[in-house]
Simulated assay, not measured.
Amino acid sequence: MGVIAPSVIAVAKDGTHRFSKEVVEEITIRAGLGVEGDAHAGETVQHLSRVAVDPMQPNLRQIHLIHTELFDELRGKGYDIASGDLGENITTRGIDLLGLSRDTLLHIGESAVLRVTGLRNPCKQIENFRTGLLGEMVEKSPEGLIRKAGIMSVVVADGVIRAGDAICVEATGRGHIPLERV
């Protein structure tokens, strides 16, 4: 089997603060804001738990990406997870999201550009969604915890993103900066 070219499998959004998002045909993203019509779009933090701490902190979680390879792994453990179920805006295939460097640029489709900010921290909502799932989203390694719940990013350039769009990874040129939770 050959190498799979990095691509978008599905896109999703939700105008309210629910855990899962609805898969849609396309999403429009806006620089500095996020997905049009999504509850997490904004220059300042929109995640309710973080708003409660400091509503003026910058929104480093405008776009949430998860790799569909995680869904494949979870399916093998008895969990049937579909795109949008874990609250992601973009489901990918063929890209090691968790291995990317902070500030990596992701060029998607014709004009969209995202800048990777960090890891999504698996939270209690995942356990509420499916009992036992939270334990599958965190793995212990000699280097510390591996958080598998995807990555977060901010929008650098406007664009429309659809399933099937190619993803081109652009390294920062500053060496690898490991992702931390944001």
Rank of each mutant, 00 (worst) to 15 (best):
E36L: 06
R102D: 09
P142A: 07
L60Y: 13
N89W: 14
D85K: 04
V116D: 01
G99Q: 12
S111L: 00
D54V: 01
A112S: 11
R93K: 14
L133M: 10
G78C: 10
H40A: 02
P58S: 08
E43S: 05
E88Y: 04
N89I: 11
T131F: 00
E127A: 05
E36F: 00
S111P: 11
E88R: 08
N121E: 15
T92M: 12
E43W: 01
G37M: 00
D96K: 15
G132Y: 06
V35A: 02
I66R: 11
G78Q: 13
K140F: 14
E136R: 04
E69C: 07
E69P: 07
V113T: 06
V35P: 00
R102C: 11
R93A: 13
T92C: 07
G76F: 14
G144P: 12
G94I: 01
N121P: 02
G76C: 12
T117V: 07
L70W: 14
G99V: 06
K124S: 12
T104D: 07
D85T: 06
A82C: 15
K124C: 00
L100D: 05
R102N: 11
L114Q: 03
V35C: 00
A52E: 13
A112V: 06
D38G: 02
R130Q: 03
V51M: 03
I81Q: 11
